[in-house]
């Protein structure tokens, strides 16, 4: 589904960012790229802009137009999990090998 349709407080994994190259690089430099987990914190009145939290750390503001070009898979409500030791990782966090494989294949 589209990031712009994600309900407030819902976490999701980013599947793809279908924006022009420059903007895609920009989003990725700000921490929003395929594979990461984000959460919608709130929207403005009329849902023109969204406030999302990326990877448990940084907060981004973006507008609906761009958010509708970002595909996500919701993974439920709640706060994000942090990374205390690898054993407690959520299955949605890729551990080192997975990530390497993903980058490699």
């Amino acid at each position: 589904m589209k990031l712009s349709e994600l309900k407030k407080g819902t976490r999701a994994i980013v599947e793809s960012v279908n924006l022009e190259d420059d903007l895609k690089k920009r989003f990725s430099a700000m921490g929003l790229s395929p594979g990461i987990i984000l959460r919608v914190c709130r929207r403005t009145f009329g849902s023109d802009s969204l406030h999302v939290k990326v990877e448990c750390s940084s907060c981004l503001a973006l507008s609906k137009t761009e958010a509708s070009q970002i595909k996500v898979t919701p993974i439920g409500k709640g706060m994000c999990l942090g990374n205390r030791g690898k054993s407690e990782q959520s299955e949605h966090f890729c551990d080192s090998e997975d990530c390497q494989m993903k980058a490699d294949d």
Partner: peptide, 8 residues
């Protein structure tokens, strides 16, 4: 397009 970081 509008995208901006909101620092704590």
């Amino acid at each position: 397009p509008f995208v901006m970081e909101m620092p704590p």
